[in-house]
Simulated assay, not measured.
Amino acid sequence: MNDGGTNSPVKVVVGLGDRAYDILIGSGLIARAGAEIAARLPGIRAAIVTDENVAAAHLDALTQSLESAGIASTAITLPAGEKTKSFAHLQDVVDGVLAARLERGDAVLALGGGVIGDLTGFAAGIVRRGMNFVQLPTSLLAQVDSSVGGKTGINSPHGKNLIGVFHQPRVVLADTDVLDTLPVREFRAGYAEVAKYGLIDRPDFFAWLEKNWREVFSGGPARTEAIAQSCRAKADVVARDEFETGDRALLNLGHTFGHALEAATGYESARLVHGEGVAIGMALAYRFSARMNLASPDDAARVETHLREVGLPWRMADIPGTLPDAERLLGYIAQDKKVSRGALTFILTHGIGQSFIARDVPSSEVLAFLRENHPG
């Protein structure tokens, strides 16, 4: 596999007909962003949406790259953190784009992690009834998951990502260099989404991660390999089921439990970030599958061992502070987007790499399971 060197990024294509787009993965892509964007969207102006932390590290480099390619830009800088995915900050972005007098054919660029990508994509999808959108993900989680596939949105007090639209980017530029400065907790959180792809339907990839995760963390070819494999896995699913009417829901392995835990902690990143919620959620999904006699307890133990080995939380007891009771947690689960006509839908498993969509899961079974696994 290409090692993602400066002159030769790995390319993954998301095949959506005339809306197909490239994911480029490699070193130096922020410096090359202007040229890559100008080649696809000639003559545009742009708004860059970012957060305070990312702006300090990467905004100047991106602005210079755009300028060198003849792209005039304006920057909209927001606070960092999950709470930025709100109506108030959506309005900040929309107003900033309109104040810059950008036209429908111009572009809105997301420079940041999943929060910035989701919020910016939503704004791009609704301003002037849809503007061009470019993803420049700066976290591992965003590079392997949230920047790919066109899901955008903001959170509600009722739950996570309940307000949004599908709006595909024109290109995704995943600069692997930026991951070198990522705090280890954020890198681990992104790694949960990498492991997810193996656990959904790529058991060989999960086994590879069990052997090579240290090299993924330390950087180099193994990191680029893991990102590219994750993007291919997601691109394949998105091309089959763009609007999540079928098996795209498999990408939500761990998310039904995870989103409920995020809502239960009030989206306080000091307690739980999204990838950590997914890690705990995947462990719970495997344990719940074993409880329902769908999978072997050995598979659940294998997942928990790997998550623990890389330093991720894997049980509700790993979340600092107190959690709402099991009944409240079930209430958050009932708000999940995968609920249909009140019936609970989970992504469960028959084993490593054998996930499936389980509809009409009895709430009584889920409640009993939550009580058994609640740290209180």
Rank of each mutant, 00 (worst) to 15 (best):
A88L: 13
D201V: 01
K85R: 04
G43E: 00
R214L: 13
A124R: 03
Y267F: 15
S364M: 13
D175L: 10
K11F: 03
L24H: 15
P79V: 05
E82F: 09
G150W: 06
G220T: 09
I23F: 08
E242A: 11
K338N: 04
G331A: 11
T256K: 06
L119E: 01
R302P: 04
V184C: 04
L251I: 09
E82N: 02
L182A: 03
A235V: 00
I347R: 08
A279K: 11
K211F: 03
R302D: 09
V10A: 13
V13Y: 01
V194G: 05
L16P: 06
G113F: 08
V273Y: 06
T84L: 11
A300I: 13
L173S: 05
P42D: 05
P42C: 06
I76L: 10
S146Q: 03
I280C: 06
P313F: 08
V361C: 02
D299I: 02
S27P: 00
I37H: 01
P297R: 07
V178P: 09
A195D: 12
E193D: 08
A56Y: 00
L199S: 04
L136M: 14
S296A: 14
G130Y: 05
I44F: 03
D325C: 13
E242C: 02
A110T: 06
A334H: 07
A100F: 04
A301C: 01
D325R: 08
S296N: 07
A300L: 10
Y332D: 13
K234P: 14
V10F: 11
F243R: 15
V108H: 09
T265S: 09
Q229D: 13
A80R: 14
G17P: 04
T77P: 02
K151R: 03
P203A: 14
P183N: 07
W314N: 15
M282S: 10
Q64N: 15
P42Y: 00
L251K: 03
N252W: 08
G376F: 03
I116K: 10
P297D: 09
P320W: 07
S68I: 00
E186T: 04
A326T: 10
A368M: 06
L78A: 08
G34M: 02
Q354Y: 07
L253E: 05
N293W: 07
A368R: 15
R128W: 01
A264W: 03
I357A: 12
P221H: 11
T245Q: 14
A57S: 15
G26R: 09
G5F: 13
A39R: 11
G190I: 03
I23G: 00
I44Y: 01
N212Y: 03
G28I: 11
A46N: 08
D106C: 08
P320M: 00
D60K: 15
F257M: 05
G149T: 09
